[in-house]
Design a protein around this nucleic acid. Structure first.
Lengths: 151, 151
DNA sequence: TTCCTAAATAGGACTAATTCCTATTTATAA
DNA sequence: TTATAAATAGGAATTAGTCCTATTTAGGAA
């Protein structure tokens, strides 16, 4: 699947790019570059750190993955490019996806009527900040050492 | 005004804190720490970088300013803490505030009815990504060297 | 006003995320 | 198979942000 994604986007299919896509797809927590590098280096010890950053940039530019805005200054990556929103934990680094078609329709309708002067909307993302009341259903991956921004 | 803000929040009124507040208030583009430091160092060459970061953290913790999430991994700061949203330029680092009471009401109503399983909402922020069709009405400040994340 | 003390700062070293560089390798088209 | 533009390795360089401690200071108490 990763190879197909690359081809479809007119990118050379390199093992490095495939590995980055695999790493992101297999994570369940919008991994930071650091975690992606760790994951990859377990399987492909010779893939360079610089390469991972470069591949991530390429994938973002092609719209194959997207960056997730965080408060900690560390970039995180998201394999899903279909429209969705994010739930941010207000006292940890946890971020989860949030899909809501009904909400999207409401937002689209709202902004179809209400234009913003001097601005053309291309995308609308909600950041829902709050507290998770359930622990995460974990996937694979080692939990990353994302710098803790709290006290 | 900055001094009053500090007092109201039970913070000692130091020249450093006042200077940081002035720097943020006088910027019109949600400055990064880097720009705040530049601005301050023109007027107060002896205020340390570490101090600026520490003051920013204090102010954020007290809710006097807030952090703005960006895609570039560089933190930016916002003097407004009343609820508002942000317009992000999709091909520059420009960020503008966006206030919309009507939208807030719609969102609040929506999420009052529709609970998200396993998540308690504390705050809702919209990121509107798109293109500005008017140039910025500039204020003072030197335009910062925010790292350009594009090609 | 002066004194006291907890709190805050200077400023430079340090850390870690990200970028940059170039010789080498490689995916793909012909 | 070959040519070549594109991509990578690997490590140095950069830089946003943090940390440390000796020194200074804001603000309350006397």
């Amino acid at each position: 699947m990763p190879a197909g994604t690359l081809q479809k986007n007119g990118l050379k299919v390199t093992p490095q790019r495939v590995a980055v896509l695999e790493a992101i797809n297999s994570s369940d927590n919008h991994p930071a570059a650091d975690e992606i590098i760790d994951f990859i280096s377990r399987h492909h010890p010779n893939i360079g750190k610089g390469t991972v950053y470069r591949v991530l940039e390429t994938l973002v530019n092609r719209g194959i993955i997207s960056r997730v805005k965080t408060d900690s200054g560390i970039m995180r990556y998201d394999p899903i490019t279909a429209r969705h929103h994010h739930l941010y934990c207000s006292n940890s680094e946890r971020i989860e996806d949030y899909d809501d078609k009904e909400l999207n329709i409401i937002l689209d309708n709202y902004f179809r009527k209400k234009k913003i002067k001097g601005f053309m909307i291309e995308d609308i993302k909600l950041q829902l900040i709050g507290k998770f009341t359930e622990t995460r259903r974990s996937k694979n991956h080692k939990k990353g050492q994302i710098r803790n921004n709290l006290k």
